[in-house]
Structures are given as C-alpha cells and as structure tokens.
C-alpha cells in the first residue's frame, strides 16, 4: 500500500484533535500552548501533503514555512504573556484566570 494523501490527512486530523484536546483540557498555560503547537503543526502537515499531492506545489511549502515562523513568534509572545501572568498570579492555571469576565 502506498502512502497517499488520505494518510497524511488522517494523521493531521488526529494531530489536530490532540491539539484541540490539549488546548481545551489542560490547566497549565504552557500545556495549552503546546496543544496550540500541535494544531499549527497539523496544519503544516496538511500544507505539505497538499503540496505533494494536491498540486499546491511550492506555495504549500512556503505556507508551511510561514506557519513555522508564525508559530515561533506566537510562542515567544505567548510565553511572555504566560510569564507576566505568572508574575501577577503566581500560577499559570488558565482556569482561574477569568479577569476578562468583569
């Protein structure tokens, strides 16, 4: 059996689901960020898969590299926020951070 587009897509979907699961269920903000990384990388897998099989070609690669860069930047900002949250709350438990409510 040759590995086709479908396999990639399924892998990406699984990865995406793990990522979402992690985002929604983890209390630790760092873990939530990790879930986010999973989601982004599942999207990368899709881009690459489509570049290979879907005729997206070079644009798929470019998009994937763009997402990686974006993820790096996003993590930098997000970790800075997390650090600030930690400094203010002395924890990074996202369940208890509901200041937005008010």
């Amino acid at each position: 059996m040759s590995i086709g587009l479908t396999h990639y897509l399924v892998l990406a979907a699984i990865l995406f689901s793990f990522g979402i699961f992690g985002i929604l269920t983890r209390k630790n903000a760092v873990l939530v960020l990790m879930g986010l990384e999973l989601v982004l990388n599942s999207a990368n897998i899709n881009f690459i898969a489509f570049a290979k099989f879907g005729g997206l070609n070079i644009q798929g690669h470019v998009a994937a590299i763009f997402v990686i860069i974006l993820a790096a930047a996003e993590v930098a900002v997000a970790l800075a926020i997390v650090l600030n949250i930690y400094q203010n709350y002395r924890h990074i438990n996202v369940d208890e951070i509901d200041k937005l409510k008010e």
Binding site: I23, L24, V32, V94, D98, L100, E102
Partner: peptide, 8 residues
C-alpha cells in the same frame, strides 16, 4: 453568565 472569562 456566558462570559466566563476563561480562555478555554
């Protein structure tokens, strides 16, 4: 009430 303030 919907607005829990929680990111998740």
């Amino acid at each position: 009430k919907v607005q829990t303030g929680q990111v998740q």
